[in-house]
Computed example of a mutant assay.
Amino acid sequence: MHTTLAQAAAPATVASSNLILLAGLGVFAILLALFNYGTRAGTIARATWKECLRQPVFSILTAVGVLVVIANMIVPFFAMDDETKMFIDCGLSTILICCLLLAVWTASIAVAEEIEGKTAMTLLSKPINRRQFILGKYFGILQGVLTLLVVLGLVMYVSTYLKFGYDHKEQAKGALEYYVMAEGSSIPKPEPQRLAAANAIIPGLTLILMEAALMAAVSVAISTRLPMLPNMITCFAIFVIGHLTPVLVAAGRFKLVFVQFFANLVATLLPALDNLNMSPAISTGKTIPVQYVALNAVYTVAYVAAAILVAFLLFEDRDLA
């Protein structure tokens, strides 16, 4: 009896968690809209967002991301019962890479090249100060990343819905309909098992947005002083080390005091990106608690605020002439 109740409650719990996450993302989108149209920095954010969408790199990353997700859905992984798991892991990783590339590339174009090309000096001659310039650029980049994430996320969601049903049939577990008809209703509803598999990626997409937001803030701060190529190299190094910090800290416990100190210093200063990498857990069917996502959201906001403050300091005395 207890097992039956737990199994019945689990889907409801997951569904409520996903609703909370979607509501949180909706509130975030509303706050971005209020920032866009309610502040002076919002004018720069809207212009940066449009510039991001017009860039060839946005179209290229969108096309590549969609093609890779669809190709992974069609081409078999030869993983026996783990086809859908492999597909989800590869799909979320593809979306993450595309979003990070867009964030770092746009930050280099929108901040570093405008400073080098003296365009920033023209903007700052208007009633916009340097802090509003940085804030506008950052939130414009973030909106571009969010747009890409929504497009690729929708493709991934639909693909997962279709992929799960196909793999379910291939594993001789029975065919799943594309939709079901509720008793006494003529309105079709999504097939529950397919829908559950597709809904499982929502926490992963939310954490990808947080990781892209972190790297965008770091890239904006670096762009105030360094041009595109050094910025991209530095961000790549931070990305790699940020995912290795747990390994460094664990290794430092058994080494010299200096190694332990250095590992803890790196773990403190650099973003803890490995905490946001939940693709393997999601692909293996583990549920990501909404509390975990909420705690990472608080961490992301705090770290982004710190990175933007560093950007303010670096840009405050930057010679634009």
Rank of each mutant, 00 (worst) to 15 (best):
F312T: 01
R131V: 13
T4Q: 13
T160D: 04
R46N: 12
T4F: 11
N72E: 04
C235Y: 10
F262Q: 06
A103R: 09
N296I: 01
S125F: 02
G165F: 02
T206W: 06
L32P: 03
L96W: 13
E116T: 09
L195G: 01
G242T: 05
T13Y: 12
I187C: 05
A272C: 03
G91W: 00
I74P: 00
I141V: 15
L314T: 02
G140D: 10
N129I: 02
V57H: 07
Q260N: 14
V259I: 13
V240H: 02
F35C: 11
E116H: 07
H168Y: 08
N199M: 10
T224W: 04
V249R: 06
L19W: 01
A197H: 02
F139T: 14
V111I: 13
G65Q: 00
L314E: 05
V180C: 04
Y179T: 06
T268Q: 08
V257F: 14
Q193P: 02
L124P: 02
A305G: 08
A63E: 09
Y179W: 14
A6K: 11
P11M: 09
I202E: 05
A198H: 05
G65N: 08
T234L: 15
I288T: 11
A251C: 00
V64D: 06
A110Q: 13
I141K: 07
